[in-house]
Design a protein around this nucleic acid. Structure first.
Lengths: 233, 233
DNA sequence: CGATGAATTGAGAAGTATCAACCTGGGTGG
DNA sequence: CCACCCAGGTTGATACTTCTCAATTCATCG
């Protein structure tokens, strides 16, 4: 593993509090892999062999049933994933596929993670914090799905994205529209229509570029709610 | 607090591994309360003052936005709740209301929980396990909502409920139909219609009594999936 | 025995999915 | 270099699911 990659891992909240010796054990057991776009990294139902850390690229988590597919979340680096499955040693509840070329992932054997977890209180504490945040994120997502229409979800997603991309009001979609549609729980066709509908709220679209022309108007339409949209709360 | 109540708390997976002395600290700081039906115990957005343990009765967790209300989950005793909010010391993401009369709750001050959490590795470990399971439960719920129609959710809920209520194929609804409807993400009207529709799959309804006449037929309709429906996986 | 709230039923509206056609830009191979 | 192909995206027509509103029945309780 390149020093560069292990440093990224070390800087994650999940690993920052791990004792150095234990961290070295984890890194020594782990290795790095790169994947092209569309690679399915993990399959729903299988057992976790590794804790994964996304270092570069993007990953979509999705589940399949009844000939349908639903995206549960999209992960941006740096972030650990499938921690819960490793901890409880239960089957993956979702599959994961890379959304961008040269997606880089650090793999740490699940057994090593559980061992260090047992003897390193710093790691245990960080694990608790991580899981608690993940839990709360999904609760928010469930609220988002159940309390809003698809256009409202889109509008709020755009608001969040715009505010995270500096204040200029214009940003580039971080992934394809089809991926965004699935992330928001809608069909590509409906995303198109919803984007067209948001023109009334001052949103203009040019290919992958989104422009929020009138933030106040978009906020009035979106009715953002920190208990759904604020990733930090 | 009655010995009976503290024993229930002690027996929970979350508290079983806590050192006795620390457990006594928690119990000494805590107290018991009983509430009538419809009492709102916690309010979305407020700060957590107590870790709650449901000892008797039932509680629905719900969130409000846009003049809508959505039930996120329904809890049956014994179980701790709002653990994640206490751990991260963040605002409640959902409100909670009692569904049954004389719902009994043990309240343990959040500060005491966080203190014990810091020094008791058994408790920290149990917290991780609890949070990981909760997280996975919600992921399953999100899949349930996104991958199934409302009648399918109902059918699978009935299957799970019937299997948990002994093998006779008949069981009583544990709460009102309106609560069930909200739990399943549908309106009471649609629950009525969906129940009527399930007659084709051999389900008969008499007030609060549900009878699964032909389990095989219901399974064929429901297409159950352990990665959505199995509470233990 | 009336009052209240839950449950059901029906009719209509809204939201979303599905299917098909078409456009468009980027890449490929002749 | 250009014609072609192809995948992603858009647009339109239609069907299905779910919501909403209104009216009715039913059981429970003071």
């Amino acid at each position: 593993m390149r020093r560069e990659d292990s440093e990224i891992v070390r800087e994650l909240p999940l690993f920052r509090g791990v004792e150095l010796e234990n961290f070295r054990t984890l890194i020594a057991a782990g290795y790095v892999q790169r994947f092209p776009t569309g690679t399915v990294l993990i399959h729903e139902g299988e057992r976790p062999d590794f804790l994964h850390v996304l270092v570069d690229g993007q990953i979509a988590f999705f589940a399949s049933h009844n000939d349908r597919e639903a995206t549960v979340s999209i992960l941006t680096p740096p972030a650990a994933f499938i921690l819960a499955a490793v901890i409880v040693d239960g089957p993956y509840l979702k599959s994961a596929r890379t959304l961008s070329s040269s997606t880089t992932v650090v793999l740490i054997p699940a057994g090593a993670v559980r061992e260090v977890f047992e003897r390193d209180t710093g790691f245990a504490r960080a694990t608790v914090a991580e899981l608690a945040c993940r839990y709360r994120t999904i609760v928010k997502e469930l609220k988002n799905v159940r309390l809003r229409s698809s256009s409202e979800r889109l509008a709020n997603w755009i608001l969040t994205q715009a505010s995270q991309s500096g204040g200029c009001g214009t940003f580039r979609l971080p992934f394809e529209k089809r991926a965004l549609a699935s992330r928001l729980g809608m069909r590509p066709e409906n995303l198109s229509r919803a984007l067209a509908e948001l023109a009334e709220a001052g949103v203009t679209v040019d290919g992958p570029m989104i422009r929020v022309g009138d933030a106040a108007k978009l906020i009035a339409f979106s009715k953002p709610n920190p208990l759904i949209d604020d990733p930090t709360s």
